[in-house]
Design a protein around this nucleic acid. Structure first.
Length: 452
DNA sequence: TCTGGGGTCCTAGGACCC
DNA sequence: TCTGGGGTCCTAGGACCC
């Protein structure tokens, strides 16, 4: 318990081209081929193999713009299978945890590790974990180590780039890069070779502003006065500069905080104009969002709904959202779905071609106390919105969630009749079914769809 | 024809109050 | 003609991340 205070040291482990690598775990025949994974409705490329990157396919590239590469270059495109990626991620994360004493799972394919005070050859340790993940799960990873999270991120960038583009950085930094062991001149070289836009926290907009002011590399940014960063941009950006200079400002968050908002949004697979179709979509989104909410034992105080036309089309544009406060916070699907439908009716305008809609649950709180209070409250909300209606109702919801988790989502749905699959109808539906090979099909079932 | 989804945080500006 | 100052709270919008 009483570890002496150490100089902080962080590692960032990150899977390479994660979604593509996950697909390759199941289908080794994809190795060596250009592969891309497509977003919902096969809209755009959200992951690319190195071979696909070499074809010039950009992150987020619309599928219709690169589709011709299927014919001309043997590009393989797959519809995303997020359930699979989640399950493989769990395995990767549990192995990566061995790298440090604490782990923060940052996203599906990245985790930060606290390596402060760990003795021995850290580089060798990271290589050992890396090869274990590759061997046992089949996912290639890179590891970056540094005295701050921002520098660990940068080290990871160096490790990945040195591997993929020989000559960009010293070859001995490929796959695992520990910036903490570099001499100051070597460190300067690395920073000088890194475009400022690659620094974690510097996005497109700030990057452009920095370059306009002659701050083009990570080294230039590290030499900026933090006060200037704050005055010119924000406190967040000041922190980025400090971290880049080696001053640790961001702690490891090994206990994930509960979400402050929960969203479910989709682009539609086809143009939508009718209110009826939007209501079905929004009911479905409410349902999914409510499940996530109950999973974190939360209740929502507000529901937000938005609808919008496509900004990429020349057609008349319309985009509106509305927040509906709930009289009492709840995680009850019908209550949330009714509120969402109510908001939708308020903002819907006929005559537009809608491309996207979403439901967000806001003003979240832990449910324990509220549920207890509601156990004695069976009143209905304003406008006929049923209130949560007691603890047994909550139990019913959880039971339905359990069935859906076990037998596949959509086994049982509440309230929304005829939930139509407007979104998520991928091009390779049959391939998706095929992919459920025994190694990963703990939740598949042939149960008939039952609608409550 | 066809352009993802799900988050966090900060800031500016308006409303309101004394 | 001239038209305070400072505080709080809320929201919309914009930036960032993967």
């Amino acid at each position: 318990m009483d570890r002496p205070t150490q100089a902080p040291l962080f590692a960032l482990g990150d899977a390479n081209n994660y979604y593509v690598s996950a697909e390759r775990c199941l289908r080794p025949s994809l190795n060596g081929r250009p592969v891309t994974v497509l977003s919902n409705n096969d809209g755009c490329c959200i992951a690319r193999s190195n071979e696909a990157k070499e074809l010039g396919i950009k992150m987020g590239a619309p599928w219709f713009e690169v589709k011709h590469l299927e014919e001309s270059a043997g590009l393989v495109a797959l519809s995303a299978n997020f359930e699979l990626y989640g399950e493989i991620s769990d395995r990767v994360m549990s192995l990566a945890a061995g790298l440090g004493h604490r782990q923060e799972i940052y996203c599906i394919d990245e985790s930060f590790l606290d390596m402060s005070g760990i003795r021995g050859d850290l580089r060798a340790r990271a290589f050992a974990i890396r090869s274990r993940i590759l061997q046992w799960v089949g996912i290639p990873c890179c590891v970056g180590i540094g005295p701050t999270k921002t520098l660990a991120k940068l080290a990871n960038h160096v490790a990945k780039t040195a591997e993929r583009k020989p000559g960009s950085y010293p070859a001995e930094l490929a796959q695992v890069c520990n910036l903490a062991t570099l001499t100051p001149p070597d460190m300067e070289q690395i920073l000088r070779a890194t475009p400022v836009g690659e620094v974690w926290g510097v996005g497109r907009r700030i990057s452009k502003q920095l370059i306009d002011q002659g701050v083009a590399t990570a080294l230039d940014l590290a030499r900026m006065e933090p006060a200037i960063a704050r005055r010119g941009w924000s406190v967040i950006f000041e922190r980025t500069v400090r971290e880049l200079r080696g001053e640790s400002c961001l702690d490891l968050e090994d206990i994930p905080p509960n979400k402050q908002e929960i969203a479910c949004t989709r682009s539609f697979g086809r143009p939508i104009t009718e209110l009826r179709d939007l209501i079905e979509a929004v009911s479905d989104f409410s349902c999914r969002a409510a499940e996530k909410l109950r999973r974190q034992n939360g209740v929502a105080g507000q529901v937000m709904v938005f609808i919008r036309t496509s900004p990429f089309r020349k057609t008349p544009q319309y985009s509106r959202s509305m927040v509906v406060p709930l009289r009492s916070p709840t995680s009850d699907t019908p209550a949330l779905a009714t509120a969402a439908a109510h908001a939708l009716r308020m903002i819907y305008r006929p005559g537009f071609v809608y491309a996207k809609a979403g439901v967000m649950l806001l003003d979240l709180a832990p449910s324990s106390r509220v549920q207890l209070e509601l156990a004695f409250d069976t009143s209905t909300d304003d406008g006929g919105v049923p209130a949560a209606g007691g603890a047994h109702r909550f139990e019913l919801m959880r039971a339905v969630d359990g069935l859906n988790e076990r037998y596949g989502r959509g086994t049982l749905t509440i309230g929304a009749r005829g939930t139509q699959r407007l979104a998520g109808s991928g091009r390779n539906w049959q391939m998706k079914q095929e992919r459920r090979t025994p190694a990963y099909t703990t939740r598949w079932s042939d149960m008939p769809v039952v609608r409550a």
